[in-house]
């Protein structure tokens, strides 16, 4: 599999559309710095991930990225707040204070008493908001969201997306939003099809 080209401008909201099995996950692993490209260049925020050691890529992810998954985003034995505070735990620059975490949670509709609860007591929608807060704290340059709304019903999905956009805009984060759901595409600045980015076969 090879990736032809994918560019996301700063502050841009890109919708990456593709069915499961289309190589999305591998692409995200590459951008997230967990997998490493065999050849070519992968530049995220002007830094070439292919030239970094595994350790530096982990550090890069801790400092500059925010990730939101489809579901099971949270460590089950921690509270919402504690989950948010995990961001920055492994980073040097990106430090997250308790107040900042609470503030961000509040902006996403999770008040202090909800944030103190074990995450297993929260609804799926609330869990995804906590996950978004965790990705957004410390103002990362890039948010990668992998089907974060697929487990939500349409009403909660809409509010969720609105909140996510608002937050990204407020803090100047770019958003790479991955989904198979075509109907969401119109809300983004730009839509890219996975099939356009990835070519199967020989590299």
């Amino acid at each position: 599999m090879s990736v032809a080209q994918l560019q996301v401008a700063r502050g841009e909201r890109v919708f990456l559309q593709g069915a499961s099995g289309s190589g999305k996950s591998t692409l995200l692993s590459l951008i997230g710095g967990v997998a490493v490209a065999q050849e070519g260049r992968l530049t995220v925020l002007e830094q070439d991930l292919t030239q970094m050691s595994a350790k530096r890529r982990d550090g890069f992810r801790a400092e500059h990225l925010g990730l939101i998954f489809q579901q099971f985003n949270l460590i089950p034995y921690l509270s919402g707040l504690e989950n948010v505070l995990l961001t920055g735990r492994f980073a040097k620059q990106r430090k997250v204070t308790r107040n900042e975490a609470l503030q961000r949670l509040l902006e996403l509709g999770i008040d202090q008493s909800l944030a103190a609860k074990p995450v297993t007591e929260l609804s799926i929608g609330q869990q995804q908001r906590v996950a978004a807060a965790r990705a957004l704290v410390g103002n990362p340059e890039l948010i990668i969201a992998d089907e974060p709304t697929s487990a939500l019903d349409s009403d909660t999905r809409d509010t969720y997306l609105a909140l996510l956009f608002e937050q990204c805009k407020a803090h100047g984060s770019s958003l790479l939003f991955v989904s198979h759901d075509q109907s969401l595409a119109e809300r983004f600045d730009r839509t890219v099809k996975v099939t356009d980015v990835i070519e199967w076969g020989q590299a």
Partner: peptide, 16 residues
């Protein structure tokens, strides 16, 4: 595994 993947996502290194 999930829990470990989450920790990795927020930047935990394998040695963590």
């Amino acid at each position: 595994r999930r829990e470990i993947a989450i920790l990795r996502a927020v930047g935990a290194r394998p040695y963590h």
